[in-house]
Simulated scan of single mutants.
Amino acid sequence: MDKIGKRIQSYREKQNLTIEDLAARTGLTENFIHAVEEDDMYPSLQPLVKLARALGVRLGTFLDDQVSSDPLITRLADREEEIIMHPDGKEAGLKFHSLGKGKTDRHMEPFFIELLPESAKDGHLSSHEGEEFIVVHSGKLRVIYGKEESVLEPGDSIYFNSVVPHNVACAGDEKAEIYAVLYFPE
C-alpha cells in the first residue's frame, strides 16, 4: 500500500502540477508539501484538507486503496494507523485510524484517534469548512473552540462547526482515545 504522501504526489503529477503550483493553490510552503510527499509528515488535518481541495478530491481519497461494497465493516483487529501527526515536527502527537477506508462514496470521515500528551504542545487553532463530532473513549480531551476551552472525559461528546477556529488535544499526562467523525462539504 502506498503511503498517503505518495498518493498526494500521484494526484499532483496526474494533474501536471508542480510542487510550486500546489503551494500557490493551497497557501502551504513548497518545503512543507515536499515533506508531506516524501516523508509522510503531517502537523494537523488542516493542510491535508487544503491539499485535497486543491487537487479536487475528498480527504478520504488519500486513504483509500481498495473499494468495498456496503456495508463497510472495520474490525478492531484490522484497524491500521493511517496518519501520524507531529505537532512540533518531531514527536508524534496524534495517530489516526481511518474507519471509513474503502467506502469510496462516503461524505464523512470517521476516525479512531489516539492523542498522546505531546499533542497538547500545539495550541494552534485551525478552521475548515464542515462539522466535527467527537466522543471520548478514554483519557481526557482538551477542546479549544473559539475563546472557550473545555475538558471532556470518557463518554462525553462534542459536536461543532469546524469553521470556528479550534484545537483538539490530550489533556493530562495519559493518552486520550476518541472516535471522531468529520464532515467536509463538497
Results as ranks from 00 to 15, higher is better:
Ser69Trp: 12
Pro47Thr: 01
Asp70Ser: 07
Ile19Lys: 09
Asp39Ala: 12
Asn167Arg: 09
Ser162Lys: 13
Ser127Arg: 06
Ser119Gln: 00
Glu129Cys: 10
Ser119Glu: 01
His137Ile: 10
Thr29Lys: 09
Leu116Met: 08
Glu30Met: 15
Ser127Val: 04
Leu45Gln: 12
Glu30Thr: 15
Gly155Arg: 00
Glu37Phe: 15
Ala92Gly: 05
Lys3Glu: 15
Arg79Tyr: 13
Gly139Gln: 06
Glu131Asn: 12
Glu132Tyr: 12
Lys101Gln: 03
Ser68Met: 09
Arg79Val: 14
Asp78His: 07
Leu28Trp: 08
Ala52Asp: 10
Lys121Asp: 01
Lys121Gly: 00
Glu91Met: 01
Gly93Glu: 04
Glu148Met: 03
Ser150Ala: 11
Phe96Gly: 08
Glu109Lys: 13
Leu59Gln: 06
Met85Gln: 08
Val143Asp: 09
Gly27Ile: 10
Arg106Met: 08
Glu177Leu: 09
Ala120Thr: 06
Ser150Phe: 11
Leu116Pro: 02
Leu48Ala: 04
Pro87Phe: 01
His107Pro: 01
Leu45Met: 15
Gly5Lys: 03
Gly5His: 05
Gly130Tyr: 13
Thr18Phe: 12
Glu109His: 15
Arg7Val: 07
Lys90Gln: 11
Arg53Leu: 03
Val136Asn: 10
Thr26Arg: 11
Lys103Ile: 04
Ala120Ile: 05
Leu72Val: 03
Pro71Lys: 00
Ile158Leu: 11
Asp21Met: 07
Glu20Tyr: 14
Ile33Phe: 11
Ile73His: 12
Phe62Lys: 10
His137Glu: 12
Asp156Ala: 04
Ile83Thr: 07
Thr18Tyr: 13
Leu17Ala: 05
Thr104Pro: 02
Tyr183Thr: 01
Asp65Lys: 13
Ile144Asp: 08
Leu125Arg: 03
Asp88Val: 01
Gly172Glu: 00
Pro47Ser: 01
Met108Gln: 06
Asp88Asn: 15
Tyr11Asp: 05
Asp105Asn: 04
Leu115Gln: 05
Arg7Pro: 06
Ala24Phe: 03
Ala54Met: 08
Phe112Arg: 10
Leu99Ile: 04
Val181Leu: 13
Pro154Asp: 14
Glu174Ser: 04
Val57Trp: 08
Asp70Ile: 02
Leu48Cys: 04
Tyr11His: 15
Asp173Val: 00
Thr29Met: 10
Glu153Val: 08
Phe111Arg: 15
Val67Tyr: 10
Asp64His: 06
Ile134Met: 04
Ala52Gln: 11
Gly102Gln: 10
Ala180Phe: 13
Lys3Ser: 14
Gly130Trp: 13
His97Asp: 10
Lys3Met: 14
Phe32Arg: 10
Phe133Leu: 14
Thr61Glu: 15
Asp156Tyr: 02
Leu59Gly: 00
Pro185Cys: 07
His128Leu: 00
Ser68Phe: 12
His166Pro: 13
Arg25Asn: 07
Lys3Cys: 11
Glu80Phe: 09
Phe32Leu: 14
Thr26Asp: 14
Asp64Ser: 07
Ser138Asn: 06
Val57Ile: 12
Gly5Ser: 06
His137Val: 11
Leu51Met: 00
His128Ser: 05
Gly123Thr: 00
Arg53Lys: 08
His128Arg: 07
Leu63Ala: 07
Val49Ala: 06
His124Val: 01
Val136Gly: 11
Val181His: 09
Glu153Pro: 03
Glu149Leu: 06
Phe133Thr: 11
Asp78Trp: 02
Thr26Asn: 14
Glu148Lys: 02
